[in-house]
């Protein structure tokens, strides 16, 4: 009788232990792996001559050479991006640098200048890792070859599924000097080795 009770209690205890272990295992494996990002290094706004907004937009402005976003610690030179053989936007070969699409207007000239950068590499954060953290009103600075700065303020940050990419809003004509920053976002599809969305920052020049 007593032995029966002990066995039954042991079976019960073992069952509870196994169930708890299963639950713990489930909890541990389902929790997504968090990757450590480097600490945010915000910096003060850059200084330099701010070129006047061109009167009719036909005035030439110098080529962009660097991008500075103090709020999210981005400070990078800008390389030139063209098109791939399939007509898609070239992306920088390095994840540590952003690039200006040479088919778009120069930053500060009339129209939407397009700058793209990677959100991450295979191993860690890319130059635009913190892009989704930008908020309306944050300032973006583009330094140009003649030393002048074009200053923009963020108006919107939006994420789109890649098959719903807003081509007109990014590459279409705009009546004033604007900026579009592009990076990846959303879910990473491990089988496609690609993110399924793009995050786009819309900014307009501060007059």
């Amino acid at each position: 009788m007593l032995a029966g009770r002990t066995t039954a209690a042991l079976v019960l205890a073992a069952g509870v232990a196994v169930a708890v272990a299963g639950g713990a295992g489930l909890m541990l494996t389902r929790h997504p792996e968090t990757v450590q990002a480097t600490a945010l290094q915000a910096f003060p706004a850059p200084t330099g001559p701010i070129a006047a907004v061109p009167r009719h937009g036909t005035t030439k402005v110098a080529k962009p050479i660097a991008l500075l976003i103090p709020a999210i610690g981005v400070s990078t030179s800008l390389i030139h991006l063209g098109l791939t053989s399939s007509g898609a936007l070239q992306v920088p070969p390095s994840t540590a640098v952003a690039g200006w699409y040479t088919g778009s207007p120069r930053p500060g000239a009339t129209g939407s200048a397009v700058i793209a950068g990677h959100i991450d590499s295979h191993a860690g954060p890319g130059i635009f890792f913190r892009l989704p953290q930008l908020k309306p009103g944050d300032r973006i600075y583009v330094r140009r070859a003649d030393g002048t700065l074009a200053v923009f303020k963020v108006t919107a940050v939006q994420t789109y599924a890649k098959d719903k990419f807003p081509t007109a809003a990014v590459y279409g004509p705009a009546p004033d000097p604007e900026l579009r920053l592009i990076t990846c976002g959303g879910v990473f599809d491990h089988s496609l080795k690609s993110y399924l969305s793009n995050t786009i920052v819309y900014a307009t020049e501060v007059g």
Binding site: T58, H118, H122, G126, F165, P173, I182, F188
Partner: peptide
């Protein structure tokens, strides 16, 4: 008067700007 300006050629589709190193597994 330049009313508006955009990209002379709009790139096709979306941009491949990530390799997944920071994506949750």
């Amino acid at each position: 008067l330049l009313d508006a300006a955009g990209s002379g050629t709009a790139p096709a589709g979306a941009a491949s700007t990530g390799f997944g190193g920071m994506a949750p597994h």
